[in-house]
Amino acid sequence: MKNALENRIEALQDRIIAQRNMERADEIPGWGMDADPENDPTYPMKHSNGADHQRLNYEKAPQQPLDMEILHSIERPGVTRVFGTSTPPSGLSGAIRRYAYKYSEATATHWMSLILADRVNAVEGKLDDLRRGVLPNPWVERGWRAEWKHNRSGFIQNVATTALLLTAGIMLMKRKNRRKQLLSKR
């Protein structure tokens, strides 16, 4: 929706509106009557001191220079004063991530796209390895070595089951192919 309500309101008005309401509190029967500072389930994890209501002009660190692509949640106006510089978005997974960050954190689109990007990224990583001459090494990198050392029988059982399933799968495919061939001959 182009003309959605969230695009038509002004930002940073919340405190101004609250202030205005409190200034004319005598027009709101009962205002503040039952306020109880002890009715605060966040105690003692939060040291409530009213800072929540001074959220507009709090002291901020200088901005970390934005010298790389940083995706940021659309639920905030821009990047935070510092941010991590690990692995900027790239390739197809990067494109999916850019798409994901167009949606708020309340949407399945945001998170499901990111999970999809992660899976695509894992494949990209493998291709990238191959390009650089790094061969897959599941023995070490998937921890099979550790399984062999500490869980040998379980590991052998797993490998055997996987092998069995694979062979069964291959045989089934072959049979299907034979059937297809036979059918097409007829």
Partner: peptide
């Protein structure tokens, strides 16, 4: 400022949650 250091507002651009 209120000791919710696990919920800082200036250290994670990617997720407000």
């Amino acid at each position: 400022k209120q000791e919710l250091y696990g919920n800082c507002h200036e250290s994670n651009p990617e997720a407000t949650a």
